[in-house]
């Protein structure tokens, strides 16, 4: 099908962009493995891998604490947003009720509102009820911001499921609740996985929300911790690189295993 010359040209182009994408990221990894004594802003290639940097960053750089905060917030947001979106998506897809389209468009508005437009009033509202500097100040707003996409996603998936399947279950005596959790959710696993991967990535990588809401050291999330570490330790490049690697690692590792879900989800035009 493809001529040899065409294939070579394609490989050259793809190879070039693969190198461009990888170079900065592998550079960080390489710096993170360099002995701190030899570290500099320039690209350093370690003689022998110096894994101790990760340990130093984890303990003395507090990245262990930051990662724990990020894990707590991210898992909470993914689980709660998914459950709420399944329930709401089910209602929008299979039921008919007064105000349906108004509510749906109101929810879709959430796709367009940037966190920059919410963050200031949110800060004052949450401060007034004593929620700033708690995990809740990160969890609730991020669930709200994920819901527009997540509900839309689940509704579209549920609508694609043949009605005959639902009706057959109802003839067998299944309740609405039963149809949702015993029939629809199990066959939605791939869609659910894609959705939760996107929410996981958005929440893990979020920066503005923790920057404004959190001042307590032990509540800082991983990206926030990295930004502060970068501001304070400008000369400790191998530690900074180790920290950056630790912060990026969870999403990158999951991406490598579930790349189809990430790419398909993001290419569908999903925005938080």
């Amino acid at each position: 099908m493809i001529s040899k010359r065409e294939a070579t040209l394609n490989y050259l182009i793809l190879g070039f962009f693969a190198v461009i994408a990888l170079f900065p990221l592998l550079g960080v990894l390489s710096s993170a493995l360099t002995d701190p004594a030899n570290s500099s802003a320039s690209l350093t290639l370690p003689d022998s891998p110096h894994f101790a940097n990760f340990l130093t960053a984890w303990n003395q750089g507090h990245f262990g604490t930051y990662m724990r905060s990020s894990a707590i917030v991210t898992v909470s947001v993914v689980v709660l947003a998914s459950i709420l979106a399944i329930l709401a998506g089910y209602a929008f897809a299979t039921m008919r009720f007064r105000g349906q389209s108004v509510l749906f468009y109101l929810l879709l508005l959430g796709l367009m509102v940037p966190s920059e437009a919410l963050i200031i009033p949110l800060y004052y509202d949450l401060r007034d009820i004593g929620l700033t500097d708690t995990y809740w100040s990160l969890i609730f707003p991020q669930i709200a911001q994920s819901l527009a996409f997540a509900t839309f996603w689940m509704r579209n998936f549920f609508r694609g499921i043949p009605t005959s399947l639902i009706e057959a279950a109802q003839l067998d005596g299944a309740t609405r609740w039963g149809v949702l959790w015993r029939i629809l959710v199990p066959i939605s696993k791939p869609a659910l996985l894609t959705m939760s991967m996107l929410i996981f990535m958005w929440t893990w990588n979020e920066f503005l929300m923790p920057l404004v809401m959190i001042t307590a050291e032990d509540l800082k999330t991983a990206p926030l911790g990295l930004a502060f570490f970068q501001g304070q330790h400008t000369s400790q490049f191998s530690l900074l690189a180790a920290g950056a690697t630790i912060v990026a690692a969870p999403v990158v590792v999951v991406y490598l295993f579930l790349q189809r879900h990430f790419i398909a989800g993001m290419l569908s035009g999903a925005v938080k």
């Binding site: 793809l14 190879g15 962009f17 693969a18 994408a21 990888l22 900065p24 990221l25 550079g27 960080v28 710096s31 802003a41 990535m201 893990w204 990588n205 920066f207 991983a222 990206p223 926030l224 990295l226 930004a227 970068q230 490049f237 900074l240 690189a241 950056a244 912060v247 990026a248 999403v251 990158v252 991406y255 490598l256 790349q259 990430f262 790419i263 993001m266």
Partner: peptide, 22 residues
């Protein structure tokens, strides 16, 4: 190639900014 070329999309912006600052 698809996985590699797409990779910068999933890296946290704070990490990307830190790397490019260096």
């Amino acid at each position: 190639f698809r996985v590699v070329i797409f990779l910068p999309q999933v890296v946290a912006t704070v990490v990307v900014a830190t790397v490019w600052t260096a």
